[in-house]
């Protein structure tokens, strides 16, 4: 795949926004940063650095709430989303790795795939580590893995613009009209120095790997999990922001006309009733069991074998959102200590 020279990243964005809806992370004016639609006439400079946005891009594919089917009293009707072509602009490597993970998990889910197939992914490689991130330790960044994005932006060290790496046929097609000159001089060296700089900044987090080893060796006692469980508010913050969390619950409602709508909504394995059965039996009744489950799902070897990657991509969002201090550093960092 080719690498091109790109003087002005905003030109690329305007071009892509002409024929699709384009989303980028922007300040919402109230202290928050969210994915927002950006039109083809928008000249706002891209701000690629900094912490990843509070919400990952999973909501574009695995919708927070969506209709699965309807029932009109006689028949069931499936309800696949009609998705206009869209581009997610400025995705960090960790979030792209998470999308690849969910692509595998939802490979057979028609709702997810309808959204995903309509989407162009444009990544941007980080030059500095974000504040809680540890992507280099879980092999999800800062460089974007091959094939994980349609286009990837790499900022030049000399501040003379960007390289644009093309990662797919759809990416090549999307920029064809821009006729960008090919040039990969220095690109690889810059990427390697970015990778080294980020890895160095994240070196202190190596204790997390001890935690992962302890978890997989079954060295974390039930008492430790229960102690951690006492810090869980069951607020579902972590499962909402985690880019690889994928659990959902059904929501069925009857409209005024008598039509039944069956939706699915994001759910959380940290909720007490997540596994409660109609009989009253609850196989994960204690908070410690549920906290353990969350982390096994992120770092357990059986899941890594199945998906070719940890369920955690090292974005650090759970640390930022957890009111009980049991995000990834609070748990995995803790259970690895001798």
């Amino acid at each position: 795949m080719s690498t091109h020279e790109l003087a002005e990243v905003e030109r690329l964005r305007r071009h892509l926004a002409q024929s699709r809806r384009l989303y980028e992370v922007r300040d919402d004016g109230q202290g928050g940063r969210h994915w927002q639609e950006v039109g083809p006439k928008d000249f706002t400079p891209l701000e690629p650095e900094g912490d990843p946005p509070p919400f990952s891009a999973k909501l574009f594919f695995f919708a927070e709430r969506e209709l699965l089917f309807r029932f009109d009293g006689g028949q069931f009707y499936s309800s696949l989303p009609e998705v206009r072509p869209q581009a997610i602009f400025g995705l960090h490597a960790c979030d792209l790795q998470a999308i690849a993970y969910q692509d595998r998990f939802f490979a057979q889910d028609p709702h997810y795939q309808a959204r995903r197939h309509a989407t162009l992914l444009v990544g941007v490689e980080c030059r500095e580590s974000c504040s809680n991130g540890f992507c280099s330790l879980v092999e999800s960044g800062p460089l974007v893995g091959d094939g994980l994005a349609d286009l990837v932006l790499v900022r030049r060290d000399d501040a003379r613009g960007w390289w644009l790496r093309v990662g797919s046929a759809a990416g090549a097609e999307a920029i064809r009209e821009l006729r960008l000159p090919t040039n990969l001089d220095g690109c690889q060296a810059t990427r390697e120095s970015n990778a080294a700089r980020v890895a160095l900044a994240q070196l202190h987090d190596r204790e997390l790997l001890d935690g992962v080893a302890a978890l997989n060796a079954g060295q974390v006692s039930a008492d430790t999990w229960e102690t951690l469980g006492t810090h869980c508010f069951g607020c579902s913050g972590c499962t909402q922001v985690c880019p690889t969390c994928s659990c959902f619950a059904p929501l069925e409602q009857v409209g005024a006309s008598g039509e039944v709508q069956h939706e699915r909504v994001w759910d959380s394995c940290l909720y007490e009733g997540f596994q409660a059965e109609a009989s009253g039996h609850n196989p994960s009744a204690s908070p410690g069991q549920r906290v353990q489950r969350f982390w096994l799902h992120k770092f357990g070897e059986p899941f890594r074998e199945q998906f070719g990657h940890y369920g955690c991509v090292g974005c650090g969002r759970c640390d930022r959102v957890c009111p009980g201090g049991i995000g990834v550093h609070g748990v995995i960092g803790e259970v690895g200590r001798p």
Binding site: F105, F106, Q108, D109, S246, C247, F248, A249, P250, R264, D267, C269, F274, Q275, P283, R293, L296, G300, P302, F303, Q306
Partner: peptide
């Protein structure tokens, strides 16, 4: 809830 390995509710270990 789903029966097809997606909703996550029926987990037993991995």
């Amino acid at each position: 809830h789903c029966g097809v390995g997606l909703c996550g509710h029926c987990y037993i270990g991995a």
